[in-house]
């Protein structure tokens, strides 16, 4: 897996103050489990995304630890309360120096 890859965020760009918004975050990644063998019997080393974090105006609001049991192209759907206008930053990091960052803006009225 390369050092970074394509990621995508789906969330509303505007929301009412205090309302709950749903965020869908997906990253393109093989999530090689480390339990599979090649035909010649060699174990394929693990290569997964291990940590996903979401910050809302630099305050961490969500964090997830991934293990080998997460499927390829990890998708995670979670919720948060729209508190203020600003930027949500999403960060994935994993084995072999993998790192990906994505941002989304939200206008809260």
């Amino acid at each position: 897996m390369s050092k970074t890859s394509r990621t995508s965020i789906t969330m509303p760009s505007s929301a009412k103050k205090g309302s709950i918004i749903e965020i869908r975050a997906i990253a393109q990644h093989d999530m090689e489990s480390g339990f599979r063998y090649t035909e010649s019997g060699k174990l394929i080393p693990r290569d997964i995304i291990r940590v996903f974090t979401c910050t809302y105006n630099d305050v961490e609001i969500f964090k997830a630890d991934f293990y080998s049991g997460i499927g390829a192209n990890p998708l995670i759907i979670f919720t948060t309360i729209a508190t203020e206008t600003g930027v949500l930053e999403f960060k994935w990091s994993g084995d072999n120096g993998y790192e990906a960052v994505n941002q989304a803006n939200i206008t809260v009225s």
């Binding site: 918004i21 080998s68 192209n73 998708l75 919720t79």
Partner: peptide, 12 residues
């Protein structure tokens, strides 16, 4: 600040 405790993902 999560609002709800609902998570959806895809697993093996």
């Amino acid at each position: 600040r999560s609002g709800t405790a609902t998570i959806t993902t895809r697993v093996r």
